[in-house]
């Protein structure tokens, strides 16, 4: 500790150790390739459509991840699968094409990983636009993503206008239409789906009463398929 140089080199090296862990994870995660399914010749995950990629940036910029997660956890880590948030756990390969994955860390609202394929029924664009405009119990409304426009004399209302009821309905002669931001956000949300099951998303479950150390040959082959 007497030498200045030795002190700062020591601090540098100490931090380097945890950075080494980061590099180890990067070797493992950074080289993840898309999965090619030989049985039907498709590659997964698929790229998001353009509007959905834009929508992910809107999602990030509004800070939606403060209340919504996008990670389905396996059984034993909570009833995510039983809630219908997904058919399987999320795996790292799901996110390789996402420029800014939004995993989140607090479930103030429901998980959205597989919103476009939610069971028993997935919301469609109109449902989501109405929800964004009106808000819900526990969720604020995002009216600034919409504009209230006057319908010109003799003009048709926009085919994008929201169909609202009750107190939310705009005055006669006006309509509420989503801005580009709202449309891309909803385009993103309806495209959130993790329907393809990768081999690593099917963890080998040890049958009850069996010694996990001794796998039967067949189970070992199924569990080891990567």
């Amino acid at each position: 500790m007497k030498s200045n140089f030795a002190f700062f080199i020591g601090v540098f090296v100490a931090v380097l150790i945890s950075w080494g862990m980061l590099m180890g994870a990067n070797v493992q995660l950074g080289s993840l390739a898309p999965y090619f399914d030989e049985t039907d010749g498709t590659t997964h995950p698929e790229w998001m459509p353009g509007i959905a990629a834009q929508g992910q940036l809107v999602y990030r910029d509004l800070g939606c991840a403060a209340c919504h997660t996008q990670q389905v956890r396996r059984d034993g880590m909570g009833p995510d699968l039983a809630r219908g948030w997904g058919d399987r756990q999320s795996v790292a390969r799901d996110y390789i094409y996402q420029p800014a994955p939004q995993l989140g860390n607090n479930r103030i609202g429901p998980d959205l990983t597989n919103l476009g394929d939610r069971k028993p029924s997935a919301p469609d664009s109109d449902d989501l636009l109405n929800l964004l405009y009106s808000g819900a119990d526990g969720m604020p409304s995002y009216r600034f993503l919409f504009e209230t426009r006057r319908i010109g004399a003799g003009a048709q209302p926009s085919d994008k206008a929201l169909s609202l009821v009750g107190a939310l309905r705009p005055p006669q002669g006006y309509e509420i239409v989503p801005t580009l931001e709202a449309e891309s956000l909803v385009g993103y949300l309806v495209n959130l789906r993790t329907t393809y099951t990768y081999p690593e998303a099917r963890p080998y479950v040890v049958p009850k009463g069996q010694n996990p150390e001794v796998k039967p040959a067949a189970a070992a082959a199924a569990g080891g398929a990567k």
Binding site: G10, V11, A14, V15, I17, S18, W19, M21, L22, A25, Q28, L29, Q71, R73, R74, M77, G78, Q89, S90, V91, A92, D94, Y95, L103, N105
Partner: peptide, 22 residues
């Protein structure tokens, strides 16, 4: 002093438990 300096960053996994991570 040295233990917190070396170990501090290694606790990162605390935020990743159960998620799609190694």
């Amino acid at each position: 002093f040295l233990s917190v300096l070396i170990v501090g960053g290694l606790t990162a996994g605390r935020h990743l438990v159960g998620g799609p991570f190694p």
